[in-house]
């Protein structure tokens, strides 16, 4: 059988991601679509470490490390320079975790989205500040344990609807994606590369240590997040929603939750609450999928 993705690797082995890191898969797959005419900027995030210490890097494309809240503005600056230098074809990407996107980087993200800067903004979402030791972020879901939402006082706020916030900026392209569906992600990026303006890609990237899950379950968890409707996979093109991975019959959320230690403390009624939150959000999106 022919591989469904290009064989070329722009991410080398030997990087410093944990065993079974979802963010590693996210980068590897994305690079296959983006190709070598690509530049990155990273804020503080897991990938700050994954890439490797001085004088090494696991990427075969240029990368500028930057401050935590500055991803989108930095990418906009790189893009402006490339345009000024007549190298407009290069794809410029911000690549940030959920903390750097949902929380501290939201202002710069909003600014770049509103200006419709011609950049990609990737958020690889592992639903907490994993790099600093699993503290809750605006992306942490209701019910989850983190080191700042301990078991007795687990997170009581729902995950911020970042995709809706981005959609409110009327950007030309945005999509959610999952590392469990690499062909879907690949296809979206190939398409988005041809679109001028702001492109937002939100990838769910399970984190075995942070989610207290087995490293071999990373892809399974990413898939279950989609199949349960916890992380629906869609794209929004010029305001039009399309579900790109269909889930006509959704699995119960428990199947996803029970594989993760971060939800181990939840009682039956808590699981029911999560199911309720997920159903509500899914119904909302479903209406948009149907136009």
């Amino acid at each position: 059988m022919k591989p469904t993705l290009p064989l070329d690797e722009l991410m080398s082995p030997g990087h410093l991601a944990c065993q079974g890191c979802g963010a590693g898969i996210a980068m590897r797959t994305s690079l296959k679509a983006l190709g070598h005419d690509t530049m990155f900027t990273f804020p503080a995030c897991c990938w700050t470490v994954i890439d490797g210490p001085f004088p090494y890097s696991c990427l075969e494309v240029p990368l500028l490390h930057m401050a935590f809240e500055a991803t989108a503005a930095t990418a906009a600056g790189i893009k402006a320079a490339m345009r000024a230098l007549g190298k407009d074809k290069t794809t410029i990407c911000g690549w940030a975790g959920d903390g750097g996107t949902f929380d501290i980087g939201l202002q710069a993200l909003s600014g770049a989205a509103e200006r419709n800067d011609d950049i990609f903004y990737f958020c690889y979402d592992n639903e907490a500040y994993m790099n600093t030791g699993i503290q809750r972020s605006g992306a942490t879901p209701w019910g989850a344990w983190t080191t700042t939402t301990p078991v007795k006082h687990f997170k009581k706020e729902v995950k911020k609807s970042l995709d809706d916030i981005v959609a409110a900026h009327k950007v030309p392209y945005q999509a959610t994606a999952s590392i469990a569906y690499p062909e879907d992600l690949y296809k979206k990026l190939i398409k988005a590369k041809e679109i001028r303006g702001f492109k937002f890609i939100h990838i769910l990237a399970p984190c075995p240590p942070g989610w207290k899950a087995r490293p071999e379950d990373t892809v399974k968890l990413a898939r279950l997040a989609v199949q349960t409707g916890i992380f629906p996979i869609f794209e929004v093109e010029a305001g039009k929603y399309a579900q790109t991975v269909k889930t006509p019959t959704r699995k119960p959320v428990l199947e996803y939750l029970k594989l993760q230690g971060r939800f181990k403390h939840l009682k039956e009624e808590d699981v029911a609450e999560i199911q309720r939150i997920v159903d509500m959000r899914y119904a909302e999106l479903e209406k948009r999928f149907q136009g």
Binding site: L64, M66, A70, I78, G111
Partner: peptide, 24 residues
């Protein structure tokens, strides 16, 4: 020249850092 009308001074310097890193 490219003029980026940023949403904060922090982003102004961030954009300058990005631009300068790219050689402008």
């Amino acid at each position: 020249a490219e003029f980026i009308k940023v949403e904060s001074e922090h982003s102004a310097m961030a954009a300058c850092i990005g631009a300068s890193s790219a050689g402008a």
